[in-house]
């Protein structure tokens, strides 16, 4: 066998290899999945990972479709991203929040007829240094999310100040090999400066607080093997509006990454109280393709 190998290594590698069409060279599942804001991460929280699988001499990207159905709302997100050399991630996401039962609150209380809120999120994330798998201090990235409301009537009425806003964040992520039960453990933390109400869907700034505040976000997940990641996320939120209290978000997730081209994520999300409707919980599903 070894002799055959010697012979093969002497041959020039002229044939284009099947891997040329692969989405990239980074190890399976290290692209994370697509968050509701379009940046790579989990479901609710951006991680320091850049989208897709491009390594330092490659480019790639993702397309995704996500939906969260909680008690009184449903959120649909279409997102796309590009990753250049595992250095820069550009993303765009369009969010549509169906107001379902809030429609009646708005009509009776404010005389507003509106059944959905839409927002676009444009994201830029730069990997500052480190590699999530290989460097002892993990991978660190900084990001910007510029968010633009497309239906500002409702946020305006309930006390939001602006119809657009910019979040800035710093993320650190690291995989600890052979951790719990010899499984690889992903830990991620993010600090975000934001004025967004409910991520921006209820506008930016408000009558209770109008300034930027730092919010803590975190995620941890166990890679059962290279195809399954199970974990939890937490996202602290500001509380800028007198109209209704805003709560922190959390979720429990399972992500299935059969190969680099595809990921499917299911989560149980708890979004707390949203615009007077209490304890919004439900199922989140996200399908992502990488190229």
């Amino acid at each position: 066998m070894i002799r055959i190998l010697t012979f093969m290594l002497l041959l020039p590698a002229t044939l284009p290899h099947a891997q040329a069409s692969d989405p990239g060279s980074r190890i399976w599942a290290t692209g994370g999945v697509t968050t509701i804001e379009g940046s790579a991460g989990g479901g609710l929280v951006p991680w320091a990972l850049l989208s897709g699988y491009a390594s330092d001499e490659e480019w790639g990207g993702t397309l995704s479709l996500s939906q969260a159905k909680v008690d009184d709302y449903s959120l649909t997100v279409q997102a796309a991203s590009l990753n250049w050399n595992n250095r820069v991630e550009l993303s765009v996401a369009r969010q549509t929040l169906d107001l379902d039962s809030l429609v009646f609150v708005l009509k009776d209380g404010f005389g507003i007829e509106q059944d959905e809120l839409r927002q676009d999120v444009f994201g830029l994330k730069v990997r500052l240094f480190g590699d999530v798998l290989y460097t002892p201090w993990g991978q660190w990235s900084a990001g910007v999310q510029y968010k633009r409301q497309r239906d500002f009537t409702v946020p305006d009425t309930i006390g939001a100040r602006d119809d657009s806003g910019t979040d800035l964040y710093l993320s650190g992520s690291k995989v600890f090999f052979a951790s719990l039960f010899d499984r690889n453990l992903l830990v991620s933390g993010t600090v975000r400066a934001t004025r967004a109400n409910q991520g921006g869907l209820l506008g930016f700034g408000g009558d209770k607080n109008n300034g930027y505040e730092f919010m803590a976000e975190a995620a941890a997940g166990i890679l059962l093997n290279r195809q399954w990641l199970v974990g939890a996320e937490y996202r602290q939120k500001p509380d800028n509006l007198n109209f209704a209290e805003e709560n922190d978000w959390w979720d429990l997730f399972v992500a299935w990454v059969p190969d680099r081209r595809l990921s499917l994520t299911a989560a149980w999300v708890n979004l707390g109280d949203i615009a007077t409707l209490t304890d919004q919980q439900g199922l989140y599903l996200s399908l992502e393709g990488s190229f």
């Binding site: 700034g205 930027y212 505040e213």
Partner: peptide
């Protein structure tokens, strides 16, 4: 940016935790 940046205990804790890796 508008307004003051208000430090937040939880966010600071997380920064400390994150830099703990270093």
């Amino acid at each position: 940016m508008t307004g003051m940046i208000r430090p937040n205990t939880l966010a600071l804790c997380l920064i400390l935790f994150m830099t703990g890796w270093m």
